[in-house]
Structures are given as C-alpha cells and as structure tokens.
C-alpha cells in the first residue's frame, strides 16, 4: 500500500483522546494520534510564529509612531529648517527648531567617548585574546561584563559628582559643573566592554596558521599580534567600533545628567551642551501635552536618532558578515 501518511506509526487504531503532550512518563501515551499536523501542533506553531512576528510589530510600531508624529511636526516646521537650522529653542515665544546644535552636541560626546572607549576596548580585547592566561581570562572577561551591567543612571551620577565635581573642578574650579567632557569620558568607559567583547570574537576567529606562519619567519609576539592578527580581524574590529559609536550616540542618562541642557553649537568640551537624547529627556521630564509642537519635536529628534543608529547597526552587521565569510 503506497502510504502517503508517513507519520502514522502504528496500524490504524481509533483513539479519540488528544495526545497528552508527552508528559506522561509511564508509557501510557499513545503516539498513534500524534500526527504532525494535528490541530494541537498547528496551534503551537501558530502561537510561536506569532511571538516571532511580534518582533516585526515592534519595529513597525517604532517606525510608525516616529513617522506619524514627525509628519505633523514637519507640517509646521520645514524639514530643511529642521536639518540645517543652527538655533534650537523649543520653548518660549519664538521657538526655533534647527537641530544642528543637538547633532553637534551628540557628535562632541561621541568623539570624546570614542577617543577613550575604542583604544581601551581594543587594547583589552587584544590582551584578553592574545596575552592573558586561561585563569586570568576567566576573571577579566566577566569583570569587563560587569562594566556593561552598571545602569547608565549610575554612570550619570558618577560623571556629575566624581568626574566633573571632583576631578575636573578639582583642576579648575571655575569650569562649569555640567560639561561635555565629563559625560563623554564616562560614555567612553561605558562602551569599553562592547568594543572588547566584539573585537575579541573577531581576534579569536583568526586562524592560528596565520600567526604560526609569522612566528616561523622569526617575528616576535607583539609583531605577530600587531602586524598579522589585528589586520586579519580588522573588519570585525571596525564593526565593534561602529556598534560602540552607535551606542554612544544613543546613550541617554549619562548625557542627560552630566552634559547639561544648553543646545549649544560648539566644539569646546568644557562647555555645557545638549545632545539629541538629552533633549528628548528634558522635554519628557516636564509635563508634555500631546499635540503641541514641543511634543512633536521629541518624535522628530527621535526619528533622526533612530535613522542614524539603525544605519550604523546595519553597517556593522554587514561588516561582521563579510568578515565571517573570509575564513
């Protein structure tokens, strides 16, 4: 008999009760009814599939709400006035919505953070993957992960009270307590673990035949690491840099607490500035009424932030994928 039903295990046997889910351990389950496409199986698959689809729904929700409110905003404020304007005053009698001061503030924080976090993170990745002994690695890796687990509001407190209050004002008490430098430095520390863990994966993926070859030619360890291993892992390292920069751009509480609330078109790290994220928090902290221009401006700035970070994350994913195909 050319059976088309391969899932039917035993001879046809009328068993009315539904399968009991395999929970019975005494062999009483009759598997003959456990057809692959029974109603129960379909329900499970549909439910699990719905969970997976919900993640798409999250993205649609984010994009939808950002576009919807931004659209109303751009009906009152021209899109070029927004993108190219150099004055940001969201309150007062004569509001002005030129986003460049906020973008400049974000860039300033990001550059300071990158100067601190990228070299330290890469150095840590090289040390942990190439130099540390196995027990040392077992201590150092989780310790760096703790650094990533500290809530950002705690970093914000530390940036304001210690980095700015004790160190920077200890050097020169006339400097403003809220400044881009203290926030940027702490954001830099915050991104170290991210750079370190992604770079370390890339460094470990370099085949040992490459370094063995270099040793055979008489290179010293540091020469092998710096001239062979690091260049071979470069695309992964760059991906980690991009991810970390994207994280720094989106970082909110540290800058909201320590960088100030002055939309300020400056490159001086010792001045009080405001970032895109800092503005969003400042508006949200006050009572905002739905439908007002300042409420809508929050979504317009959020949209810009989302586009920038999404672009950088996609770039990093693309780079990682390219690098994985190499070996």
């Amino acid at each position: 008999m050319p059976s088309t039903d391969t899932t039917q295990m035993s001879p046809a046997q009328p068993v009315p009760q539904p399968p009991s889910g395999g929970t019975s351990g005494n062999g009483a389950v009759d598997y003959s009814t456990n057809l692959e496409w029974s109603l129960r199986e379909r329900i499970v698959q549909v439910l699990l599939g719905a969970c997976a689809l919900l993640t798409i729904g999250t993205t649609l929700g984010i994009v939808g709400i950002l576009l919807y409110e931004s659209f109303s905003f751009f009906l009152s404020v021209g899109i070029f006035d927004f993108l190219l304007g150099t004055e940001w005053r969201f309150a007062g009698v004569e509001p002005s919505f030129g986003v460049l001061p906020l973008v400049a503030g974000t860039m300033l924080i990001t550059v300071i953070a990158a100067l601190v976090g990228l070299p330290l993170g890469l150095g840590a990745a090289i040390y942990i993957s190439q130099y540390a002994s196995r027990p040392a690695r077992k201590v150092l890796k989780p310790a760096l992960e703790v650094l990533a687990g500290v809530p950002t509001v705690v970093y914000g407190y530390f940036a304001l009270t210690f980095v700015s209050g004790v160190i920077i004002q200890g050097i020169d008490p006339s400097l403003p307590p809220l400044n881009a430098l203290s926030a940027g430095l702490v954001v830099g520390v915050m991104i170290i673990p991210m750079v370190a863990s992604v770079s370390e994966d890339a460094l470990r993926a370099v085949p040992s035949s490459l370094s063995d070859g270099a040793y055979a030619l008489g290179a010293t360890k540091i020469e092998v690491v710096m001239k062979v291993v690091v260049p071979a892992a470069l695309s992964g390292i760059i991906a980690s840099f991009i991810l970390a920069i994207s994280r720094a751009i989106g970082e909110t509480m540290i800058v909201a607490i320590a960088a100030g609330a002055t939309a300020n078109l400056t490159v001086n790290p010792l001045e009080s500035i405001q970032t895109m994220t800092g503005f969003i928090v400042q508006v949200a902290k006050g009572d905002i009424d739905q439908g007002t221009l300042s409420y809508q401006s929050l979504f317009a700035v959020g949209l810009l932030l989302y586009i920038i970070t999404l672009g950088m994350n996609l770039l990093a994913t693309w780079l990682t994928r390219r690098f994985q195909e190499q070996y």
């Binding site: 929700g61 984010i62 709400i65 919807y68 989106g250 909110t252 949200a284 994913t317």
Partner: peptide
C-alpha cells in the same frame, strides 16, 4: 527578515523605546 530585525532591535537606543511607549 525576523532574524535581522531582532538583531537591529537589540541596537535601538533605549530612549527610542521610551518614545514608542509614550506614543503607543
């Protein structure tokens, strides 16, 4: 698509989730 989307969601700044929560 779902997989790429999940990886990207992991990189969305938390403040943007806050905006989603506020709006939705």
């Amino acid at each position: 698509l779902i997989q790429i989307n999940i990886n990207n969601l992991a990189g969305v700044p938390s403040v943007v989730y806050g905006i989603l929560g506020l709006g939705v």
